[in-house]
Each structure stands twice: as C-alpha cells, then as structure tokens.
Design a protein around this nucleic acid. Structure first.
Lengths: 337, 337
DNA sequence: AGACTTCAGCGAAACGATTAGCTATCGGAG
DNA sequence: CTCCGATAGCTAATCGTTTCGCTGAAGTCT
C-alpha cells in the first residue's frame, strides 16, 4: 500500500502539500495540485485512517450497542442507524449486549478502545449499575431506555403513555379483568409501561388482580410460559396488555396452544412494533414507536455533540406512541369471563 | 484520555514496560507489574487502537456488507455475525448496500480506507460489474451469493437444490400448474432457485406456463404486485414457488387481497427463512437455510485468511437447504384449477 | 528603491502505541 | 577478584498522517 511519502516523492513535493491537496486545507497551485492528483491516482493511494485518526484523534466510527439483536425491534433500529450514520459520513460499529450487563460492560470498554467518536446505547442494566461518570469522554445518546440520574442525552418514547393508551383502549372495549405481561422492572421501558397500565385502570377505579401482573425477560419464550401460566387458571383475564412485540408473539402462541382464540376468548394489545408485521394474523392492536424517526433523532443529537464538542445542556427527547388498531381485540361479551 | 506515557510516568517505569504488561509480551517482575496494573486502573487507561493499529497495521475490524438490512434474513445474518466476530476478538462494522451496486462500490472503498482486516460481503451486482482484482489485498468471503469468475472464498447454499426440493414437494402434492416468483436473474441465488424449479418440473415432463414465471426485486412490494397480476388471471397457477421469505409475505398478502385462501385455493412454498416465523399464519412450507451455521463458517474462513495471510486454495462451502413443512400447501383437489 | 506584506510550499514535530536493540545489574564460574 | 552470561527494563526508532511555524520569492506601498 502506497503511503503519503510515496505520493510526495513521486509528485516531487512535500507530504504537507499532498495532505493539503487531499483535504483542501490550504491553497495549492494548479500545477502542483495536478502533479499530486496524478501521483495519487497512479499509485492507487488511499490514506490510512489509522494514521489520520491517530493524528486527529477521531475515528469516524459511531458505535451502536443494542440490547438484543434477535429482536426485530432492534433489527429495525440497526437498519435505520446504518443509513443515518452513513449519511453523516461515519461508519457503524455494531454490538449486541444480549440484555447482559456484563457483556455491555465489555462492549463499553471496547468502544473506548476503538476510539469511537460517539455511541448510541440501549442500556441493559439497572440505573445503579452505572458509574456517575460512566460515559464521560465519549459522546453518548441513550436510545429507547434511559438511566435515572445519568447526564447523557436520551431519545425515548413516552412509555407511560404507551401503557395507558393501550389499556385505555381495552377498558373502552369493556374489559375489566385485564392482565399485563411486561419486561424486567428495573428497565425504564417496563416500568413506564406498567405504570401507565396501572394508572389507566386506577383512573376508572380498577386495579389488576395480583396474579394478573407479571414480568419476565423481554423474550418470546419467557412471555410464552408466563402467558400459559396466567391463562391456564379459571379466573384468567379477558384481555392482556403485553409490553413488547416479541413477547406478544409468545403470548399469542401460548393462547393458541391452550385452545383459546384471539380475539374471541382473549383480547391482546401490545406496545412496540412486531416481527413480520405484514404476515401476523390476527394483526396486533398496538402502540407503535416511530423507530426510524427516533433513531434519526438520536444520531442527529449524537453527531451534534461530536462535532460541537458541545457543552450544550442535556437533551431528552420523548416521542409519543401511536395506537394502531389491529384485529387482536374485541369488546367484552357477556359470555366471557 | 490517559495515554501509555501517563501510565508509565505514574508507575515509574518506561512505556515499553507498560506495553509488555498489557500484551504479556515479555517477562516483567511481579512488583513492577503490580505498579503498572494499579496505574492503569487508577487512570482508567485504555490503549488507543488507532495508535496500536498504525503500528501493527491491523485494525481489528471486520466489515459486513449485506444486501438489504430491512430483510429479516439479513438481520438474522447480522445477529450471528456480530456474535461470531466478537468471539474471534474483532469488532463488526456494518454496511447496507440496499441492493444497489453503486452503494456497494462506495462501501467497498470505505472498507479499504477504514483498513478493515477482512470483510464478509453479500454482493449485489452482476458478475461483470466486478473487476477481476476487485477484492485484492483484503481478506474476503462472499456470503449467500457468489460471483462467477471471482477468486474469493464463498459460503453459499445449494440454491438449485432449494428450488428443486420445494417444487418437488408441490409436484408430489399433485400440483401441475406451478408458478414461480423469484428475484433478479443476475443474482446467483435467483438463478439457481429458478433453475432448480424448472428442472424439477422438467424431470416430470412438465414446464411452467410462460406467464407463470416471474422475477422482480427481492422485496415485499415487488412480490405483491407480481403476485396480484399473476393470480388475477383465470388460468392462474394452483401453487407458487416464491424464492424468498420477504417476497412470500407479499405474495400471501396479495392472495388474501384477491379473496383467495392459502392453502385452500393456492399452495405456497418458498425458500429461506421468514419474518415473524413464530407468528405467521399459515406457517410457510419452505426450504430453510442454516443461517447461523453459514455465517459462522464464513467468519471462520475469513479469520483463517486474515491470520494465516494464507495462500491456501480458494474454498467454496455449499450448505444444503432443509425442507420445513408448514401449513401453506395442500394436495391439489379436482375443484381447483 | 527600500521596507513591508503576502503566501506557496516545505521541514519537522507531534499523535500513542510496539519493538529492536541496548544498558545495567546480578549471580556464578574460573 | 575478574569476567561472563542472563535478563529486567529502558531508549529511541517507527508506523502514516496532520499541522505549526518557517523560508524565500514575489508583489505592494510610499
């Protein structure tokens, strides 16, 4: 691989001039410029990012660490993020913490070592697992989940509103015995959606039965077994709010396996987008996140921080969920419950 | 950010010693080692990859360029690849060529500039769009699709067998009027699956009607409109082979919108995995790729090339598809067709 | 004409690590 | 007591860029 010195020698100029031509950082006479350009072309010279970055202490890399790559929700984020990162002139380094705080810790250290200019993180740990200065020295935007007491920029949805919207919808259909299946309570997403659900019921003077409020891992299998358990008992709920799309799939499978029908026997409403949105039957009634918008916004904030090296105040952007009515809910009938 | 010099100063040793401790590359007395380790911890020192890589001329980066990040098939590859790359001690830089040769060209140049140690590429262009030495100087494994006449390692599936298996299955159910919807013919995947389909029919002395063999973009929308067109005519096929999971979703949607039922009115068999495998109804009968195995194998080959800097012979690994029977096909009945 | 600007282009010092080669110390052999 | 080999640890060169500060030629002003 040719280096800048080879180019300089071949063009009969100094390396400084070559650099100036490459970066348009100083005026170079047309004649010299032409010689340099020719030399670059003939030698097939490509500047070494390693050297350039060492010098500039930038890497042109943006890291994205998501919580679970097997979840289509995050796959969607990855898709949007790749496009946004490329559009801003960076490249995307992808990590999957797989919902494991230990893995996340390793990833954060790796991101530092790589010298990424910034990172978008979907944190997987409880707030107290992070040092106060955990993200110091590297531009950071938390996406989807926030960490209480942390000073990084965040882009999230209004989880409380999502839970409230979905459960209000079920209540409007006449359901009273409503269950919920959410993720780990130490995550801001689970907590918010759960609270929204509770508050929606409380607003009508209701409260879910103790056994009807469950939480578990944000995974299909976890949701499946919780749902089987909850729906197996005779006083099962007539409607369920499921906090996440992948879990909703597990719940629907559990219901089918129990010989129940959705929505005839049990209504299901969930939050967040769903795998195979086009093909799932019945289509889920759900509150959707504007994933692409959120991701784009996160990267806009991040690039802003990176390039301004800014001491701007912390920004917390909250997106509102939108209720999308599918076919997975129906009004409560007398013969059910 | 602390540098190796800061650590050396704080520990009262030379930078060489710090480096030796970090890399375990020379014997260091327990006492000094302890001092160094303490200093590293206290300063929260993380070595700069930029500097290290400049020196070692390696980047610890492996690039993955897939054809379409919105396709769950590639999302699945990304998932597996991230895990494999991390397991080998590298980090993953992700690119999406979005099935556009121009974008792919830019990506390849970017990968060079970044100095990635190797790349896994799902090529999107026709064979003649690549220079003979296109991938010279960077370890490369082509995944899923191959480029005729190119000397890179490849990991693919036997597309011909996939098409043949699926269509043999339809033939065994008694179908004779079988249509196919595949992707662009310049791609090895489309071509192979299409040929397998034709050969399966030819083996029984059959051939598809001209209007029943269609190809288009590997996307849901493209498949939807092609399917609507094909299934709208009175002599429509009784079964369709769809070359890809995303397209299958489009086809099923088209069928539903035409008021037809699957599998009662038309059987559908496809190749490759499907979005929302858990939730789609009816579940597709399909030939599946062992995506995780393929991806792991691709990375094994790649790391092998990177670390051996090897002149080993070119390796072409071909995986066999497996027929998974769902509920999207049924035997041909007299009243159909 | 002399003094002062301007500015194209160059030389060399960074950036932060690795590593070849050297120095100094120590123990043991002659 | 000297000399030698072994070896822990240091010095300094190096990787390929960017960039600060300098040089000297040309242009401008009085």
């Amino acid at each position: 691989m040719a280096t800048i010195k080879d180019v300089a020698r071949k063009a009969g100029v100094s390396t400084a001039t070559v650099s100036a031509v490459m970066n348009d950082t100083a005026f170079v006479s047309p004649e010299l410029r032409a010689r340099v350009v020719t030399a670059i072309r003939e030698l097939r010279y490509e500047p070494s990012l390693a050297a350039r970055n060492l010098r500039r202490s930038r890497s042109q890399l943006i890291a994205l660490a998501v919580a679970d790559l097997s979840n289509p929700f995050y796959a969607r984020i990855v898709w949007s993020a790749e496009a946004a990162v490329a559009a801003w002139g960076y490249s995307l380094v992808l990590f999957n913490s797989d919902e494991k705080p230990d893995t996340e810790r390793r990833i954060l250290s790796r991101i530092r070592t790589l010298g990424c200019d910034g990172m978008v993180l979907v944190p997987v740990g409880a707030a107290n697992q992070y040092q106060p200065h955990e993200f110091e020295g590297i531009a950071t935007v938390l996406l989807g989940r926030s960490i209480e007491g942390n000073s990084a920029d965040t882009v999230t949805i209004d989880n409380w509103a999502a839970g409230r919207q979905a459960v209000d919808y079920l209540l409007d259909l006449g359901h009273r015995r409503i269950g919920s299946i959410t993720g780990p309570m130490q995550l801001s997403t689970s907590k918010g959606r759960h609270d929204g659900m509770i508050d929606a019921m409380a607003a009508r003077g209701l409260a879910p039965q103790p056994g009807h409020v469950r939480s578990g891992e944000f995974r299909e299998e976890a949701a499946y077994s919780v749902a089987r358990d909850m729906m197996g008992s005779p006083d099962r709920p007539t409607a369920i709010y499921v906090a996440n799309g992948v879990m909703a799939i597990g719940v629907m499978r559990a219901i089918a396996d129990l010989g129940l029908r959705c929505p005839q026997d049990v209504s299901i409403a969930s939050t967040d987008t769903v795998a195979g949105a086009g093909g799932l039957k019945p289509r889920l009634t759900r509150t959707e996140h504007p994933i692409a918008d959120m991701t784009n916004e996160a990267l806009r904030l991040l690039v802003d921080r990176i390039e301004e090296r800014g001491s701007e105040p912390v920004r917390n952007i909250v997106f509102q969920p939108a209720l999308i009515v599918g076919e997975s809910c129906m009004p409560l009938r007398a013969n059910v419950g």
